[in-house]
Amino acid sequence: MGKIMMRKMKDNQSGIISAVKVGGELGRRIRDMGLVPGTAIKVQGRAPLYDPVALRVMGFTLTLRNDEAGHIEVEVE
């Protein structure tokens, strides 16, 4: 157990979001897609050039850039 930034997560690692540390448009986009504290996520994989990252969240697949994932703090198992 421990808190790490989402961009540091490995493929197939899961965890629960503990904080989203960004406001403005990016923060809004992230939250609109359901990435809010308490949501369970799993890193499904990464694009061929290791960026963006694909997540499994609430039963659908969401992709975001590593830079963007850098704002999201996850409590990993």
Binding site: E25, I30, P52, F60, L62, E68
Partner: peptide, 10 residues
């Protein structure tokens, strides 16, 4: 640049 927060639909 606009955020790349994109769904991969089934």
């Amino acid at each position: 640049s606009a955020p790349f927060v994109m769904e991969l639909p089934p």
